[in-house]
Design a protein around this nucleic acid. Structure first.
Lengths: 192, 192
DNA sequence: ATAACTTTTTGATTTACATCAAAAGCATTT
DNA sequence: AAATGCTTTTGATGTAAATCAAAAAGTTAT
């Protein structure tokens, strides 16, 4: 078995902080390579989420169940972290499941590894602060998009935020992400 | 003029980190006391937001203008930070105005002060990471509330998240916060 | 107190989207 | 290639909330 080089992971960190050789080594040592088949479950809401995945190639879907239906929450893809945020932070169960929409290759970090890194590398704290700021902005935009816009505008906003990967996500999953029905989304796409 | 004791501010930090005496002193030195009259503008969207306010007593409203109407984004009150997040982080203009709904007393930190604190006190980075995690959770909940629930359920969710201060916010501002019309909100409140 | 605003409520009408139902299109399996 | 099971589209009907309009209640100024 070959050792997967973690270039994409390192590049991601370097968008926010300078990676010292020792931190690089610590990350390299702790992050393990994992792969998932299409449709495979990555995280089960029945369990506490103790792992965070950095996707190298592929696509996940985080969702929860409401009235027996799967409601998509977000679609983490290449160069993004994926976990069940609240569960991961509080070490309690939360409602989110995560599945692989496509065959996916990822690097996995355990909570404990992350705790160790935060304890020993102050620049990791900075990385977390800065990268959370980015996600923060996305969440705020999404809130705006959900509040005032028609179904058509919501879909337009989705196309914008997920423009590189929108075609990789089935229609039904997009509809539940937007909080509209499949039928409405189908009609919107049909226009023009 | 009396020196305002910053007990509430320190207590807030101590929810997340242990405050060393030197950090306490650094905070005390940099945070200035400010007060606003009812209706006074705290931040103007025409300018870059370089200040962050920690509210000791009072209530703000962050909002933006859409089609000539003021759309409320959130209502920061006692023991919370308030700024125009994206503008504050990126040092670019953003769409948010902030007004004082009530006469308000607050402590003010400049971006530069914060940068200094992050540079010199690694525990500040941790504070930022942890406190952002809290806000993060609120944002995710709000997204869920906006997506699938009826106007009535949205209002119920608002009452829950803002239960201590909901009666201090005028109806029209609540309606725009929820993305429903004043009329609809008035009818909902009228039931029972 | 009266006037002049502003905020909230009440009423009638319209509309975007949900719901229900079924057909059509695709993909995977035998 | 037929069969089975998903996904997407198309159609008919219902409904929650928006819009338009105006009255009532509450607030601030003269």
């Amino acid at each position: 078995m070959t050792t997967e080089p973690k270039v994409l992971l390192f590049q991601h960190f370097e968008k926010y902080i300078k990676l010292s050789d020792t931190l690089k080594a610590a990350l390299d040592e702790r992050a393990s390579f994992v792969s998932f088949k299409k449709g495979e479950m990555v995280h089960d809401a029945e369990k506490v989420c103790t792992k965070s995945y950095f996707i190298q190639k592929g696509l996940f879907r985080a969702y929860f169940i409401k009235d027996g239906k799967e409601i998509s929450e977000y679609f983490p893809a290449e160069n993004e972290w994926s976990n069940s945020p609240k569960s991961f932070i509080t070490r309690q169960k939360d409602v989110y499941y995560i599945d692989a929409i496509e065959p996916t290759e990822a690097f996995c970090l355990q909570v404990n590894d992350l705790v160790y890194l935060f304890e020993n590398f102050p620049e990791m704290e900075r990385y977390a602060r800065l990268s959370m700021g980015t996600v923060f902005g996305h969440l705020m935009e999404r809130i705006t998009s959900l509040r005032f816009t028609s179904a058509k505008e919501k879909y337009a906003h989705f196309l914008q935020t997920y423009h590189d990967i929108h075609h990789r996500i089935p229609l039904g999953m997009v509809a539940s992400y937007l909080g509209i029905t499949q039928e409405t989304l189908s009609r919107i796409r049909g226009e023009r």
